[in-house]
Simulated assay, not measured.
Amino acid sequence: MNKYSHVDLRVNELERALPFYEKLLPALGFVRTFHSADWRVFAGEGELPQAPYVAITEDPEHRANAHLTGFWADSREEVDRLARLVAEAGGTVADGPRLFPISPTYYAVFFEDPCGNKFEIVHRLN
């Protein structure tokens, strides 16, 4: 069983970050939205509260740090496609997509959202 539930993500400028997430999260399978005045919620398949989701809220005092959230990709081609989407949507690709010496098949892209939060998309076989 996948124990992933959700991520509550802070951004310091929602207006700047939201267009990025409106492109990235549906491409990662978070295709349903449940927005409120304070939260923008992007959910995957399944019924809430069991469905995985990413919830984004604005905190003007938030400062990005070394925390990193990783997402799986089904193939190297998907990593490449999502890396292009990140760049087109206003994110910053920090490294990759390429093989990393974590394992012989660890193919990933590391990137930041417009507010500096760090992410990774990875495909690996072992």
Rank of each mutant, 00 (worst) to 15 (best):
Met1Tyr: 11
Met1Gln: 09
Met1Cys: 11
Asn2Ala: 14
Lys3His: 09
Ser5Gln: 03
Ser5Val: 12
Ser5Leu: 13
His6Val: 07
His6Met: 09
Val7Ala: 12
Asp8Leu: 10
Asp8His: 13
Leu9Glu: 01
Asn12Lys: 12
Glu13Arg: 13
Leu14Gly: 03
Glu15Gly: 06
Glu15Arg: 07
Arg16Gly: 02
Arg16Lys: 14
Leu18Ile: 09
Pro19Asn: 11
Pro19Ala: 11
Pro19Lys: 09
Phe20Ile: 05
Tyr21Glu: 06
Glu22Thr: 06
Leu24Pro: 02
Leu25Tyr: 11
Leu25Val: 14
Gly29Asn: 08
Gly29Ile: 09
Phe30Asn: 07
Phe30Thr: 09
Ser36Gln: 10
Ser36Pro: 02
Asp38Asn: 14
Arg40Val: 02
Arg40Asn: 07
Val41Phe: 04
Val41Ser: 09
Val41Tyr: 04
Phe42Lys: 04
Phe42Met: 08
Phe42Asp: 01
Gly44His: 02
Glu45Pro: 13
Glu45Val: 12
Glu47His: 14
Ala51Leu: 10
Ala51Tyr: 07
Pro52Leu: 05
Tyr53Asp: 01
Val54Arg: 01
Ile56Lys: 00
Thr57Ala: 02
Thr57Asn: 02
Asp59Met: 06
Arg63Leu: 10
Leu68His: 08
Gly70Trp: 03
Ala73Pro: 01
Ala73Phe: 03
Ala73Glu: 01
Ala73Lys: 01
Asp74Gly: 15
Ser75Ile: 07
Ser75Thr: 12
Ser75Cys: 10
Ser75Lys: 05
Glu77Cys: 03
Asp80Thr: 09
Asp80His: 10
Arg81Gly: 01
Leu82Thr: 04
Arg84Phe: 05
Arg84Met: 10
Leu85Ala: 15
Leu85Asn: 14
Gly90His: 05
Gly91Met: 03
Val93Thr: 08
Val93Ala: 04
Val93Asp: 00
Ala94Met: 08
Asp95Glu: 13
Gly96Asp: 08
Pro97Gly: 04
Arg98Ile: 03
Arg98Val: 06
Leu99Cys: 09
Pro101Gly: 02
Ile102Glu: 11
Ile102Gly: 07
Ser103Pro: 00
Tyr107Met: 03
Tyr107Glu: 01
Tyr107Thr: 02
Ala108Glu: 07
Val122Leu: 08
His123Asp: 06
Arg124Asp: 12
Arg124Cys: 13
Leu125Asn: 11
Asn126Lys: 08
